[in-house]
Design a protein around this nucleic acid. Structure first.
Lengths: 208, 208
DNA sequence: CTGAAACATGAATCAGTATTCATGTTTGAG
DNA sequence: CTCAAACATGAATACTGATTCATGTTTCAG
């Protein structure tokens, strides 16, 4: 029984060892940031621990002080993206009483976030292949929130009646597609134009 | 100059060595099919050449008679998916004069295809990380076709005016999201329901 | 029939890289 | 100050898996 069984019941989520000093804190954050950039750019498999630690300016072994596994940093990044995106959208829409307007504001906030964090965006997409559970949780959580918003709006008569679940997925699909336009296809189109067009489609459809 | 410089100017697309006998033809197809299943299920990185060849019932070295690289089979599968999907949708919509109806029929055809070929669907998604060029070509080609259809419909007064490019991306985003529902999230919802809800959204929007 | 081209085999090669570890260095509570 | 806990190092380990190759076997045009 030599081991203190420190990490017996994970102090935080599935996080590796948590730092206990300011120095450790900084180092962990440096690694996490480097991982975001490197994995986002090269993809999970081509991003080696060596790349990450050298980008972070620490030795290779240091990685394993704070993370148990390469996959674990990845998962943590997916979680982080989830928290950040939900927070960003919630904040952007909290004062808006009308759902259609909220839809527009939320989409804009999402696209701005994605443009500012392209690496995180890609990481979430890659999660489908690296950490399917994290991927599913990300989208399920998101969709649940989305759906309940739609249900409320429907009840309040702010939107027409319809299959809220499918609508939620479809609307998320639109947001994703436009986000991909920015991050993957490097579209030059201004976000406001994307939002305006998408909003018109969402509100009115394309029937003449 | 011992080498016949056989593959000097690729006989077919970027395809590896093409078989020259019936036996070879069959073997190549067996490997391709196995690759589709194995890569679709395990993902690119966990799918080893050994897995693929054993699933195909051939020796490991046989793989390299028909493909130059692991990445190359993958690319070929992405191309195949592109051809098949375009063909499927074109066929399902060719006799439909009205764009809105075509939209509905096309979406249905796409979802049915995706449900029948979940492995190919996943492979295309993973292409963003394994072979970005193939991924981009897949979606660019698709979007171009989509967009020109919308332009024609707009001119014919079958749909309202709007930013065709963004609309094309958004509509593809809806299709993708629903496809993912089927393949990734294993939704039980019947395709007709998905199509009906999505069609209503696309045609009329959600404004009350 | 027949032999050169095709095809098939599977063991060996070879490189990359995640993870571990023995050894220092730094920090901060007391 | 002081020393035990934290933190950091980077070389060594260990393993996986793509690709090659020397050696047979099969096909089919002539």
């Amino acid at each position: 029984m030599g081991k203190p069984a420190a990490e017996a019941h994970a102090s935080q989520k599935g996080a590796g060892n948590q730092p206990k000093t300011a120095r450790g804190e900084a180092t962990r954050k440096a690694i996490l940031t480097a991982a975001e950039r490197v994995i986002g750019e090269k993809g999970y498999n081509d991003a080696s621990i060596g790349h990450i630690t050298s980008e972070a300016g620490v030795a290779q072994g240091t990685f394993y002080i704070y993370f148990t596994t390469k996959e674990q940093v990845f998962s943590e990044l997916v979680l982080e993206m989830g928290r950040l995106v939900r927070h960003t959208i919630a904040e952007a829409t909290q004062d808006i009483g009308n759902r259609l307007e909220a839809e527009e504001a939320g989409l804009r906030a999402f696209l701005e976030f994605v443009q500012a964090h392209p690496d995180l965006y890609r990481i979430v997409q890659e999660a489908l292949f690296v950490d399917p559970a994290a991927y599913e949780e990300y989208y399920r959580t998101f969709a649940d929130g989305y759906r309940s918003g739609l249900v409320a709006a429907e009840a309040a008569g702010q939107i027409s009646k319809g299959d809220t679940e499918t609508r939620a997925w479809a609307l998320m699909g639109i947001a994703r597609a436009l986000g991909e336009q920015l991050v993957v296809f490097k579209s030059e189109k201004p976000i406001s134009d994307l939002v305006a067009s998408a909003y018109d489609l969402i509100a009115n459809g394309i029937k003449p």
